[in-house]
Design a binder for these strands. Structure first.
Length: 565
RNA sequence: GCGCCUUUAGCUCAGUUGGAUAGAGCAACGGCCUUCUAAGCCGUGUGUCGGGAGUUCGAAUCUCUCAAGGCGCACCA
């Protein structure tokens, strides 16, 4: 909404300069400091074509431009600075927010379009560790962000539920499983027997052959293997769901690797028919030399398919089933080349929609002090991290607000919010250096900070017990109020920018900015105690609008708010 | 060896797509609770924007080059 001013300015300037709307819109910028104006147009580029000094051009434009909707227009050096009419902005922004409430920021620009989002995708029988939260949090945020603009989203959990390791697990299960332990801590027990299998296989290599046989039987659909595989999958999912429930994440599809087992023959056939398959070192591959990429392997030399084949089958299946507008893969950056190969192969197969496939990559979760390895079982389970954060939140509640009613519930929301917030705060392509200290610090630019700002706002509204409708928006003219209103007005612009870049952190940063601006306002301007009724009402409206934007914003990145904390 | 990514304050990171004096948080120090929640606010200090060259009115941002670190380069996903 705030950016609509940009359009107005460019239209008016276009009429005066003869430059196109788009050219001008690209030049318009937001000055580094609010006292310099709300928008600025640099005249340096015009200086060349008009053969006139920039400051003279700015002066001339200032004298001739239509000024309605703006408080004033000034020139500084070669800049033409625009000051929007603040009373107008306050009125239109706050009225819009208070009318639309929960749907403020939402639009329908994506109506009729489907977006498939492949995210989280853990491996069955393996721990769901702190690294998995990156894909999970980013994917879930994208799901919510796209949905808010009217896109129909399909969340796909592409489970790692197929492969030779299941042969090993099946044999290990038959020999050593402790059913009771499996009931209690499925993943830990599965991990234990999996490790045990490798130890025993060292002494008795014949175990490997038995495992291979089990997997062959599984592929052939033999009853015993399928049953055990299903059981292992079920107990794993139960454990994963504990975490998904904590994070309040739901998927529309759990079609994982096994789902595409019978859909790959067709892909191979299509590749053959198009003459794309060539033999290389005994394997069937698609040559990608002309794209400066290594070949995409379709069939291994032993005739078995591989993950690229599976991803091709999955993409084709998704296009047929959902007719997606965008097909998003939230997968680690280390797989960049793999997805390039897959997308290029799809293009070679004649699928133009290959251009709609997007790999949304993210960095790694690393450890500063010690090097952790999954092999040694030296991992941090996500569930443990979340519980640790909840515990920390609980301690803080006891310390700061022991009289709080629903402590457990609040601690859960704040603790989990803090963790998710940390994962979504920075550019997703950055690595996260995992540190207990940082992630359990609830001060500064954190989830709890934003939630706290919301709770403070709500507290004021509770104490006000409603407010009148005679507003004096004119008086919301302090720098703190104006700054806050401008931010609130640009909510939708920020969402669109996050969509454009598939980047939730843009939104997270924005929410921090709103909370910061609110706290500043809160500290400097009394609300409940002032005499002027019309100003009081306007400020209360501003407080309510702020709580709405924080709540809606956090909802888009998968974080809840609390009314008190 | 080749390709991709990263390098901004002591630490963790922003930087509106080439614009005005490069900004936040953490950590440190100082101030603000008989008034709307101090998980807050205010103040203090720090920069060869990895090095060098180029492009132009103007570069943290674009190009080239060098350096350091990370990831990836065919039968794992």
């Amino acid at each position: 909404m705030f950016m609509e001013y940009k359009k107005i300015i460019s239209e008016r300037l276009s009429a005066l300069t003869g430059l196109s709307n788009e050219a001008i819109e690209k030049l318009i910028e937001i000055p580094p400091k609010p006292e310099m104006g709300d928008f600025a147009f640099p005249c340096f580029q015009l200086a060349r074509t008009l053969r006139k000094a920039p400051n003279l051009i700015a002066e001339e434009l200032k004298n001739n431009i239509e000024k309605s909707g703006f408080e004033r227009i000034e020139t500084v050096g070669g800049y033409l600075n625009f000051f929007v009419d603040k009373a107008n902005l306050a009125k239109s922004t706050l009225e819009k927010i208070l009318t639309e409430k929960d749907t403020y920021g939402h639009t329908k620009i994506g109506a009729g379009k489907t977006v498939t989002i492949d995210f989280s995708s853990p491996n069955i029988a393996k721990p769901f560790h702190v690294g998995h939260l990156y894909s999970t949090a980013v994917g879930n945020a994208l799901y919510r962000i796209f949905s808010s603009q009217g896109y129909k989203c399909v969340g796909i959990n592409h489970l790692g539920d197929w492969g030779t390791q299941f042969g090993k697990l099946i044999e290990a299960y038959k020999r050593w499983v402790d059913e009771e332990a499996l009931e209690k801590e499925p993943i830990k027990e599965l991990l234990r027997i999996y490790v045990k299998f490798h130890e025993e296989a060292e002494k008795d290599p014949s175990l490997e052959d038995i495992a291979r046989m089990h997997f062959k039987n599984l592929e052939d659909g033999k009853e015993e293997e399928v049953k055990l595989w299903q059981k292992i999958k079920d107990v794993s999912l139960m454990e994963f769901n504990k975490v998904y429930d904590m994070l309040k994440i739901k998927f529309d599809s759990y079609a994982g690797e096994s789902f595409y087992n019978d859909k790959m023959d067709e892909v191979v056939k299509m590749l053959e028919e198009k003459g794309l398959l060539t033999e290389s070192h005994g394997a069937q591959v698609v040559n990608l030399d002309e794209f400066n990429m290594p070949p995409c392997i379709i069939k291994k030399s032993d005739g078995a398919t591989i993950y690229a084949t599976r991803d091709l089958a999955a993409a084709i299946y998704r296009k047929r089933t959902y007719d997606f507008y965008k097909n998003i893969y939230v997968v680690g950056l280390e797989q960049t080349l793999h997805f390039k190969q897959v997308f290029t192969t799809l293009k070679l197969m004649g699928f133009d929609w290959a251009d709609d496939c997007v790999h949304v990559g993210f960095g790694m979760v690393k450890f500063a002090d010690k090097k952790l390895s999954t092999r040694k079982g030296d991992v941090i389970f996500l569930e443990d991290l979340l519980n640790e954060a909840i515990q920390r939140a609980k301690e803080l509640i006891e310390e700061k607000n022991a009289a709080l009613e629903n402590k457990e519930e609040v601690a859960k929301i704040v603790g989990i919010g803090a963790v998710v917030f940390t994962y979504l705060k920075n550019n997703r392509e950055r690595d996260i250096v995992f540190s207990w200290n940082d992630i359990l610090n609830f001060d500064g630019e954190t989830g709890p900070y934003v939630q706290y700002s919301y709770a403070r706002g709500k507290s004021i509204l509770r104490k006000a017990e409603g407010y009148g409708t005679n507003f004096d928006f004119q008086k919301l003219n302090s720098p703190e109020e104006v700054e806050l209103i401008k931010l609130l007005a640009s909510f939708n612009d920020v969402i669109l920018s996050a969509i454009d870049k598939y980047e939730p952190s843009i939104l997270t940063r924005y929410i921090i900015d709103v909370a910061k601006a609110f706290n500043k306002f809160y500290n400097m301007h009394p609300i409940l105690s002032i005499e002027d009724e019309a100003l009081k009402n306007a400020r209360l409206a501003l407080v309510e609008a702020t709580t709405i934007v924080i709540k809606n914003g956090l909802a888009l990145i998968g974080i809840d708010v609390v009314e008190r904390m």
